[in-house]
């Protein structure tokens, strides 16, 4: 019995990390219809900022998380405002190519400045042991962050002025513009929020994972899979997709072996694409 509880716990905690990775990616994809290839690099950049603040200035990553979030928001805002906005209404292939190019720049910039050496914040918080079941505190924190980010985003989109504007732009860009919404600004803010979430997630991940530029593609791939599984166009989609993928990988990893865990996740993604392209809880549009 305890083995099963541990498998579920492992899955949920991995899933929470996955949700963290995917929330911002889902937002940009859902609202801007942009597949943001920069997302993985944003997470890694957040991780680096947190690492260096901790290693050189002794700033706790849990404080730095907020600073990183602010910095990444600004970076995301500027990238969208200065570059992506120019092509955002063009076909998706064009925005994909642009973010791909920007990602190459950011990735190689990080490779030159930080080098690919793995770096981890060696704050080991230990684990909460309930009987034989172990719950690592840092992953519990990641879970909390994922829930908080999803919750806040949900609330912002439903109840705040800017949130309603984001939803309006998503529904009908032209009508929103006619209603006096500054579409470009809304896009930039949305992209900023997404980058902010990636940064916060990266800061936390630096405690759990060794940060290296090598993982950018991997994280991006995960974000993509999670969004397809969970469904675009709904805030809880990334959370559900992340948790689902975490649980699947945990069970598949235990029963079939680690080699098959990723395979099963990808199979699920493909199956969903065929059977239910909106994902587990996706909707058309974004709200």
């Amino acid at each position: 019995m305890e083995t099963y509880i541990q498998i579920i716990a492992n899955g949920l905690m991995l899933g929470a990390l996955y949700a963290c990775i995917a929330v911002g990616f889902s937002l940009v994809w859902g609202v801007l219809n942009v597949i943001n290839m920069l997302h993985g690099s944003f997470i890694v950049l957040g991780g680096y900022l947190a690492f260096f603040a901790w290693a050189q200035l002794g700033v706790s990553p849990f404080v730095m998380l907020f600073v990183v979030a602010a910095v990444l928001f600004l970076l995301g805002f500027l990238i969208q405002y200065g570059a992506i906005n120019r092509v955002v209404s063009k076909p998706v292939l064009l925005t994909l190519t642009l973010t791909f190019g920007l990602d190459l720049i950011l990735y190689n910039f990080m490779n030159v400045v930080f080098e690919a050496t793995p770096r981890r914040i060696t704050l080991d918080l230990g684990s909460l042991g309930i009987g034989e079941v172990m719950l690592p505190y840092d992953r519990l924190l990641a879970m909390l962050l994922a829930l908080a980010m999803t919750g806040i985003l949900y609330w912002v989109l439903r109840s705040s002025r800017i949130g309603r504007a984001i939803v309006a732009v998503r529904m009908d860009r032209d009508a929103a513009a006619l209603m006096g919404i500054r579409v470009n600004k809304v896009y930039a803010i949305t992209f900023g929020i997404s980058a902010m979430m990636a940064g916060a997630c990266g800061a936390l991940m630096a405690v759990v994972y060794p940060i290296t530029t090598n993982t950018t593609g991997l994280l991006l791939g995960k974000a993509f899979t999670i969004c397809v599984i969970g469904g675009l166009g709904s805030v809880p989609g990334a959370l559900v997709g992340g948790l689902a993928l975490g649980l699947i990988e945990s069970f598949a990893g235990t029963w079939l072996g680690a080699q098959y865990a990723i395979l099963i996740g990808s199979l699920l993604m493909l199956t969903l694409l065929m059977v239910r392209p909106t994902g587990l809880i996706g909707k058309r549009g974004y709200e």
């Binding site: 083995t3 990893g253 990723i262």
Partner: peptide
């Protein structure tokens, strides 16, 4: 005796089995 794939992001399943 187990192999894990390139690009693995989690060892909890493998480690839980080794623990057992």
């Amino acid at each position: 005796d187990e192999l894990y794939p390139v690009g693995n992001l989690d060892f909890s399943a493998s480690m839980s089995k080794i623990k057992a």
